[in-house]
Nucleic acid binder design. Structure first.
Lengths: 340, 340
DNA sequence: CTTGATTTGAGGTACGTACCTCAATTATAT
DNA sequence: ATATAATTGAGGTACGTACCTCAAATCAAG
């Protein structure tokens, strides 16, 4: 049988009340008593029974994901994963929900965050772009003791805020290597398409991509980023124009997670199979395109892992527990036709 | 507040005792009462409080991994992961340990399994090759109500036994696509090296590999598998002989998880960087070789995920809970220099 | 030594569920 | 209708921890 607090009290030569005071950081304990309890903990190998703690505290957890309203298939998949996590965690005294905000209005986002109440929400996972207002609002969340993790965006480590998501420089570099190795000795130009280059994630991916192409594969030239702003008409215009101007495009890299629109536009001008195309994130579209061999590889981060990781981190922060860094590291995955 | 058994009894119009009988499948409950309780469960949304259940049952879990004695770096990493999981789960009333057996002696393995006692072990994760004796012993473990998952081996679904591990056909096919795409239009022969081709996993990887090469990349020819039997001298002999006989070897595929020995042998005869090499599993050796660009890609399954997945499944089986299939699916990962 | 503050111990209740006993009620077979 | 079996309810204890109160013991300062 595992030692209990009672055994611990006995081993430390103090009363249960004192053990309780030490374990829960209550005042009025002499240094000597505290020391003796801590020694006893290691000597008899006492480990708190979490089930009993949770029961006694009768604590429930309530976490919320905050997503943008925009977004196509990948966002939908993230929301699915939140739903799944929600049903999985219900027996764990944890409620999970989400909200969607228009991230183009930082003032509104900050406003929303300032209305969050500690009585209703213990922690939030927020997928929002950098902005001073939002940053301040997040800081004030922390002051109200609402835990925050930055979710798949930002990553500009503000303070000691937790971040969940793959490293975007790595993701871009991985895309760069795949596109280059798949092209072999073929030389030419590579189109780079993004929704926006304002976002830190996209900038970092671009940096990683360029670094690999420049240092390892100088026969390839990466063109300046085209920004679609999520606008289908604009995408069509700028993509077709570039394809007319540049004669020897041999590859395409779609930086942001919603690859459907740009690649559909390219398919109107060129045979996709004649290009080497790398996109990000597994979606119904990228899956189908991989199977059709219309695109060649997808660099992805597992959305289910990301959601669960964010929740584990929030939970650990609420309990003042350490997080297992190795487990929370979101990998940059490479998906090919075969390993979907 | 969440409804408790008391609320449930009230809602169902029965006593707490009857609710308890229904929830824990005890005898002597009329169909009518059972029905009313079940209806009340859904109508008030009752969910068992797991913390309280665990506390009341005061149950501890004890799981054991069973590994081969042989093996090099990948096995060591698996053992590390078992240690980590062990410390992570200690606060979850779960003990985790492992044993190593000489898998070349199926009789001894079967014997070991037959000595396992339900009082000491609730479940085992076995990494053992197929064999009639072992299969029988596993069946008898089930009869003694010890839960079993097949771990990273076997996969010949015997009965409804759980399997943890990536699909090996997929893994081989993925290796095939990478090696072929990386070679581009280069034609030539591809060496295939394994420790043994007796193992089902290796056979399946080879099948997947051949399928991709044959159907998509006919300019490449995969040579017959070389079997090293884990013997360094033998590896040296057969590898150098093949490299002398076959003039146009352009790629190498190492099927089994311990790539160190075969690739070191190849390096004595050829410049590794002039070959396109794909191996399996992330180990200190493959990591270093990827960074040096001596090997080009690694097809891997995350050992930490695998260990945790096996433990989650064993735990779920002990509690007669369903498993979340999506979460337990071990992915075939592709590792390049950039996304290590 | 006295006074007041700090520290300690004893004992209680609570959390939600499991599991037990025993008596009371209801259903079924004869 | 009676005997027997099946079902139900009431009430208890237990799990390990948190958190509370109150009195007793110890300590520090004057």
């Amino acid at each position: 049988m595992r030692p209990t607090t009672k055994d611990l009290a006995e081993a430390a030569g103090v009363s249960l009340a004192t053990v309780d005071r030490v374990l829960n950081d209550r005042p009025n304990v002499s240094d000597r008593s505290r020391e003796r309890v801590h020694q006893a903990i290691t000597s008899i190998g006492y480990v708190r029974n979490i089930a009993a703690v949770n029961l006694a505290k009768n604590r429930t957890y309530s976490f919320r994901f905050i997503f943008p309203t925009a977004g196509d298939q990948y966002l939908r998949e993230l929301i699915n994963q939140v739903h799944e996590a929600s049903t999985d965690l219900i027996s764990d005294m944890t409620d999970v929900d989400f909200d969607q905000l228009d991230m183009r209005d930082p003032h509104m986002v900050a406003n929303y965050l300032s209305t969050l109440d500690r009585d209703q929400v213990d922690g939030v996972a927020i997928m929002a772009p950098e902005s001073p207002q939002v940053r301040d609002a997040i800081t004030r969340l922390g002051e109200r003791n609402i835990k925050v993790v930055q979710f798949l965006s930002g990553q500009e480590k503000l303070g000691n805020l937790d971040f969940v998501g793959a490293d975007n420089f790595t993701a871009g570099a991985t895309a760069g290597r795949i596109i280059s190795r798949f092209l072999g000795q073929i030389s030419g130009k590579v189109m780079v398409i993004a929704d926006t280059m304002q976002s830190l994630s996209n900038i970092q991916r671009r940096l990683g991509f360029d670094q690999v192409l420049n240092t390892c594969f100088p026969v390839l030239k990466a063109l300046p980023s085209l920004e679609t702003h999520g606008d289908e008409a604009r995408a069509k215009r700028i993509i077709s124009r570039q394809l007319q101007h540049e004669s020897d495009v041999v590859g395409v890299y779609v930086i942001n997670s919603e690859a459907r629109v740009p690649i559909e536009q390219i398919s109107h001008c060129k045979d996709l199979r004649s290009l080497t195309i790398v996109a990000h994130e597994r979606t119904p579209f990228t899956e189908k395109a991989l199977l059709n061999e219309e695109i060649d590889a997808v660099v992805a981060q597992n959305p289910g892992h990301a959601v669960r990781s964010a929740l584990r981190i929030l939970r650990a922060r609420c309990d003042n527990r350490d997080i297992i860094a190795a487990q929370e590291n979101i990998r940059v995955e490479v998906l090919l036709k075969e390993n979907l």
